[in-house]
Design a protein around this nucleic acid. Sequence first.
DNA 1: CTCTGGATAGAGCGTTCGTTCTAGATATCA
DNA 2: TGATATCTAGAACGAACGCTCTATCCAGAG
Lengths: 189, 189
Amino acid sequence: MQTSTRDRIVLAAARLVQRQGYVGTGIKQIAKEADATLGSVYHFFPGGKEAVAVAAIKHGDEEFAAILREALDGEEDPAAAVEGCARSLATALRASGWTDGCPVTAAALETLGTDSEIQRACADALRGWQDLVADRLLRAGLARPDARELAGTIISTLEGAEVTAQVTRSEEPLLQAGRQLARLVATYR
Amino acid sequence: MQTSTRDRIVLAAARLVQRQGYVGTGIKQIAKEADATLGSVYHFFPGGKEAVAVAAIKHGDEEFAAILREALDGEEDPAAAVEGCARSLATALRASGWTDGCPVTAAALETLGTDSEIQRACADALRGWQDLVADRLLRAGLARPDARELAGTIISTLEGAEVTAQVTRSEEPLLQAGRQLARLVATYR
DNA sequence: CTCTGGATAGAGCGTTCGTTCTAGATATCA
DNA sequence: TGATATCTAGAACGAACGCTCTATCCAGAG
């Protein structure tokens, strides 16, 4: 077998949660989409639906981080690098038919009150992405406090622009945000 | 009766959808929270759950717009006005125990594939808020294309920062975003 | 070969979902 | 008063939910 059953479950869950949210995704739907049975899902994830979702979110986290890393390292100038992130996200979003946005936003919002493991995974993802950007800005010579604050805003903006792009079914919000972020970064030299 | 049954239903639905999303909110829960019965809900909203949600989102839209309007008109300088928006949102978010964020994000993400009325209501809300900010920037003397692009980014950033603030249970992301947006706006004079 | 434990398979549990439906309460006007 | 429309009330339905449970399959160890 090329991909293990467990991996197929995580992959399918990641895609579904990303598109329909945590509550909107059924565990039977995950099983069907992964070409697995309910028994297999509960075998690999005795924690049930929440455990599957946590694994799915961590997978999405890593995927998103990979996109960011590649874009951030692809440009010499930090402003251009940030704009490249927005462009990468826009391209990926369009390619998916506007469905595969940020892998954590939906799940995070649905589980706000509940201090579940899902919340933690989402918070970890956000912090990790922010660190990625902050490191890049540090390497570009920004002061540490500036880098941290700017990185936080960059991630928030990308996050928000992604949602806007999904709702309006256009990559323009992301491209706009990229241009404005580049302009903002440029003010720090 | 002080508030009509219909209004209580819309209010309760708005709060619940804002906190738990569209899928995560049951129509019976809405009825209970609004001190109404299922019969009343279906009497006022023959369109069922979706119709209730649309009304709830439009209500949240107006509420959010009011916050923006007040903050935007509260400052002389446009940069300070935008930063004021972020501060207002931060205060309101903290006051709600980090639960009452943007009234459309969750619902919008959950209904992405479906070309439902909900999607349209969310898109309308986003566009309306963007227009509010763009008008304010125009009044401050910005060129029309600049105002539009900047306004889009501002709304996206506030949106994303709000989510980040909710997940991290801190107003810092919103305050950071406010400062950075002010800096960005200031580059346009 | 048998034995064993991980993996697969899905019927069925109790619950909740959105919706429908009928019946009763309340108000308005002839 | 009686007639009519509006609103309230909640039982009941089929479908789907997350999860439990037993049964079967099958590769590798002895």
